Computed example of a mutant assay.
Amino acid sequence: MAHPLMFDDADPLLRRLRELALSFPDAAEKVSHGHPAFYTTKVFAYFGGSVKVDGAYERHEHSVLVLLDPDERAALADDPRCYLPAYLAPAGWIGVDLDEDTDWDEIAELLDASYRRTAGPRRVARLDARSEPAR
């Protein structure tokens, strides 16, 4: 049984996240478990997540889930915008709520960190090559 879609394709927060995520080398989008997922060979970000509270799921419809190094994840742990997403938290994922005041430069940095953990050395080298200054 397919999961129902849990997002609005016209959502401006999704539109901005999509723009950032799809700017990475070979990045693509698919729907996974009802949410947009951004990936190369492995997923590096999801739009939307949930937390299990008293046996029920509390949705975070406007959030991004990223896979971070343990130190980066720990640095965000006390941030009130952040949460440990159901199912994915034990694997190192963290959710960050998005709103109209979101610092998109920070989100771009988190996407970059997650991409680097999942994309493989060739893609990371391509990412690094495009950000080097021209000589």
Rank of each mutant, 00 (worst) to 15 (best):
A2N: 11
M6L: 15
D8R: 11
D8K: 10
D9L: 08
D11K: 11
P12V: 08
L13T: 03
L13Q: 04
L14C: 09
R16L: 03
R18Q: 05
R18P: 04
F24V: 12
D26I: 00
D26F: 00
A27N: 06
A27G: 03
A28Y: 01
A28E: 14
E29Q: 14
V31H: 11
V31A: 06
S32T: 14
H33Y: 15
H33V: 03
G34L: 08
P36R: 04
P36G: 13
F38G: 01
Y39H: 15
T41R: 15
K42D: 12
V43Q: 04
F44E: 06
F44V: 02
F44S: 01
A45N: 06
A45T: 07
A45L: 02
A45C: 12
A45V: 07
Y46T: 09
G48H: 07
G48E: 02
G48W: 05
S50W: 00
S50Q: 15
K52S: 10
D54C: 02
D54Q: 14
G55H: 04
A56T: 15
E58T: 12
R59C: 00
S63N: 05
L65H: 11
L65A: 10
L65P: 01
V66K: 02
V66A: 05
L67G: 00
L68E: 03
P70V: 10
P70W: 04
E72D: 15
E72M: 11
R73S: 08
R73E: 08
A74K: 12
A75C: 02
L76F: 14
A77L: 12
A77H: 11
D78F: 07
D78T: 12
D79N: 14
P80I: 06
P80V: 06
P80W: 11
C82S: 10
C82Q: 07
Y83K: 03
Y83F: 15
Y83D: 01
P85N: 01
Y87S: 12
Y87K: 07
L88V: 07
P90E: 10
P90C: 06
A91H: 15
G92F: 10
W93A: 00
W93L: 06
W93I: 09
I94K: 03
G95Q: 03
G95N: 02
G95K: 01
G95A: 00
V96D: 01
V96K: 02
L98A: 05
D99Q: 10
D99I: 04
D99L: 03
E100A: 15
D101H: 08
T102G: 05
T102K: 04
D103P: 03
D103K: 10
D105S: 09
E106D: 13
A108H: 06
E109D: 15
L110F: 03
L110I: 05
L111E: 01
L111Y: 01
S114L: 07
Y115T: 04
Y115Q: 02
R116Y: 05
R117E: 13
T118F: 02
A119S: 11
A119I: 01
A119P: 08
G120E: 10
G120Y: 08
G120S: 09
R122C: 00
R122G: 14
R122Y: 00
R122K: 14
R123Y: 05
A125L: 08
A125P: 04
A125I: 01
R126P: 02
L127W: 09
L127M: 09
L127T: 05
D128I: 05
R130T: 08
R130A: 14
R130F: 09
S131W: 07
S131C: 09
P133V: 13
P133L: 14
P133E: 13
P133Q: 09
A134K: 12
R135S: 13
